[in-house]
Structure formats: C-alpha cells, structure tokens
C-alpha cells in the first residue's frame, strides 16, 4: 500500500492504495466515479479512456501510482453542465446506442480536438481508430467529431 495524491476533475484526493491498482479501478471503486468504463482491461478497447495532464490515456493499464501528482479528467469532469461541444454534438446526432463505450469515445475525441482543432477525416479515423464500439456507432461518431470541431471553431 502507498499514499497516492491525485487531482481528479479539479478535486484533490489522497488515498492509501495498492500502487499497482489501475487508475480505472481507483476511479470506479475508490472514489465512485463510474462514468469511466471497463471493457477489456488490456488497453484494447478504449472504454476506460481518461485524460492525464490533458492527454488521453487508457486507465485500465495505468497504475494509480503513475498518476501520482497528475491532473486527471474523466467524463464526469469534461464539462460542468454536460455541455462540452462534443457532448452536444453527440446528443445532436444521437450517437449512443447502448452507450457503454461512449465516455471513452468522447474523452478520446476531446484529446484529439485539443491538439488538433480542425482534424481531417483521416485525423479523426486515426485518433478514434482504436476505440471499439460493439454497437457500431462509428458512422455517427465520425460525424459528431466533425460537428464538434465546427462548433468549437
């Protein structure tokens, strides 16, 4: 066990936990932010994507100790009122089917738009190309990222 200090969605946390525990389980079970999802646990699906210091990371393989001192943003902290341009675009185009993968999709897209506010179709496919949506919402995700980019510019 070790003391780990994290800043999650602007709030400071200090916990005595197994330093090897992946950030995903810390978020879901220690501090009960369950918007970040478990899909595979081996960095293959993207359901667990969060931001660490502004960059998209897969929290299922990130030991919580590696996030010590970092700023973490989860879907719950992406915007205060659920009105991030991506969240709005996702709703406007009615992207979700079961919805389970969508937090990971949105967090991946948010990181893309931060680095590249005017992504081309190829940029979008490259950035989003490793997030699995088992329901097959890819067509609308592609459009929603484009729409959000337009909204932001």
């Amino acid at each position: 066990m070790a003391i780990v200090k994290l800043k999650i969605n602007g709030k400071a946390y200090e916990s005595d936990v197994d330093p090897e525990m992946p950030l995903l389980w810390y978020l879901r079970e220690e501090i009960e932010l369950v918007g970040t999802k478990y899909g595979c646990g081996i960095a293959q699906c993207g359901a667990c994507t969060v931001h660490m210091n502004g960059t998209a990371v897969r929290s299922c393989v990130l030991p919580v100790s590696s996030a010590d001192g970092a700023e973490i943003t989860t879907i719950e902290g992406l915007s205060e009122k659920g009105d991030h341009p991506l969240q709005k675009a996702w709703d406007e185009l009615d992207v979700p089917q079961c919805g389970y993968c969508q937090a990971g999709q949105i967090m991946t897209a948010a990181s893309l738009l931060k680095d590249n506010p005017k992504p081309s179709l190829e940029d979008i496919e490259l950035a989003m190309g490793n997030n699995i949506c088992r329901c097959g919402t890819y067509h609308r995700i592609r459009e929603a990222v484009k729409l959000a980019a337009e909204k932001m510019n």
Binding site: E32, V34, K37, I75, E76, L78, Q87, D94, P96
Partner: peptide, 22 residues
C-alpha cells in the same frame, strides 16, 4: 428524428449500467 432519452445521462457518465451499481 428523435434522440435517445438516455443521452444526457450517458454523455455525462452517470451510473446507469449493472456494472455501475452499488
């Protein structure tokens, strides 16, 4: 064109699914 009634909760990461249940 009617949007899913659960969109607002899904898009903000609210606990909805069995795996989220506590």
């Amino acid at each position: 064109f009617i949007k899913g009634v659960d969109n607002p909760s899904v898009l903000t990461g609210k606990p909805l699914y069995g795996i989220d249940l506590k």
